[in-house]
Amino acid sequence: MTTPATSPAPPPPPTSAAPHIEIDGRRAATADDLLVPTLYGGYAHFTAMQVRDGRVRGLPLHLARLDAATQEVFGAGLDGELVRERVRHALDGAGVRDGAVRVYVFRAPEAEAATLMVTVRPPATMPPAPQALMSVPYARPFPHIKHLGGFAQTHYGHIARRAGFDDALLTGPGGVVTEGAITNIAFHDGTSVVWPDAPSLHGITMALLETRLPESGGLPSVRGPVTLDGLAGYRAAFVTNSQGIAPVRRIDDVEFTVDEELMRTVVAVYEATPWDRV
């Protein structure tokens, strides 16, 4: 007598300690699969996105980021449809439709094609509490690329938290403000939202707000030089990344008032951004 076949139980949702990981679309990684990220993991780039019901805000921007960085770093572009298929496959493998997803791009020196690693963790959101930032004298190399190997920015983040701050604020020579350790930062001068005009990563949330704030929020969004000795001239500040937006209450010894009206406008504009299906 033949026992009827049964469908395997879906895998449990990923936990923060054990993300669901797929390499080149394979759910059971082999030793060969792991070789490239293990040996060449410091020479790679990635994008981080929040997925809700199989959708992502600013998905075309994520795909464009991956394609441009792969072209610059490895000399060949990256097909956006392939990335979407790999993300869908990983979400299905994790048994979820909501998650914090990262797409990493590696390539072994002798390989003809890039290796894609997709990780899925539980959804994440920016803590809403106003943040305190400690300025540090560090600027990321090749800041326009969201690359791995960021020991210094990670270490400075730890130093800042040990000193009682929430995170680090990266600065260049002369106290030029560039970006947060894992965020973009913006300031409000009473009229416009000002993003530091300095080498930094053009984050997806930042890019969405730059375009949509003037159109939907009636709030001009500009680039301009920002320095530590000029922080007192701004009324408010906030940070952004793939997890969302949070106000800034202090940078070093400079205190900022949390502008509730500003934050309502910025958050409302961001939350009104359409979600793109993966």
Rank of each mutant, 00 (worst) to 15 (best):
T183S: 10
A268N: 07
K146F: 00
P123R: 06
G99M: 02
L201H: 06
D167Y: 00
A232I: 15
V96C: 02
T30C: 12
R162W: 10
D24I: 05
G41D: 03
A64I: 14
A207Y: 14
D253T: 12
I245F: 08
A76D: 12
D53Q: 13
T3E: 15
D53R: 11
E72S: 11
I245R: 00
D67Q: 11
P19T: 13
L209C: 12
D259R: 01
S16D: 15
Y270D: 08
V239S: 00
M126R: 14
A232N: 14
T257W: 01
N184C: 13
G175F: 07
V96H: 00
E22R: 12
F142N: 11
P8A: 06
F106M: 02
A237G: 02
H155Q: 15
M263T: 05
T47S: 13
M49A: 06
S216M: 06
A29L: 12
D166G: 05
G41P: 00
A160F: 04
P8L: 06
P220D: 13
E215K: 06
R121M: 10
E255H: 12
Y138F: 12
P247E: 03
G157K: 02
T227V: 04
P60N: 13
A268C: 07
T273G: 02
A272L: 09
D24V: 07
V36N: 03
V51W: 00
I185D: 01
M1L: 14
N241G: 14
G77Q: 04
T178Q: 09
Y104T: 01
A9S: 11
E210Q: 13
V101I: 10
D166K: 03
P127S: 12
T3W: 14
M134Q: 08
L213F: 09
M126A: 15
P109Y: 08
P173G: 09
P247V: 01
S200V: 08
V254Y: 08
G157F: 04
V103C: 10
Y40Q: 06
K146N: 00
E255A: 10
G25F: 09
Y156Q: 06
A90I: 11
T205L: 04
Q131S: 07
T70A: 13
T211I: 15
A113Y: 13
A152N: 15
L133Y: 04
D167I: 00
V87T: 12
L133W: 03
H147T: 08
G230I: 06
Q243A: 15
D189G: 07
Q71W: 10
V193C: 08
T191G: 10
P130G: 05
P173D: 12
R235N: 09
S216G: 07
T240I: 08
I23M: 02
R26I: 09
G230E: 09
L262T: 05
A152C: 12
A207T: 15
V258K: 01
E22V: 11
T171K: 06
E271T: 09
M134Y: 04
S135H: 09
T257N: 03
A113V: 12
F74H: 06
G42N: 07
D259W: 02
D33W: 03
V194G: 01
R97M: 11
H188E: 04
R264T: 13
V56A: 05
V278F: 11
A108M: 05
T178C: 13
D253R: 05
T273F: 02
A114D: 05
H155F: 13
S192Q: 14
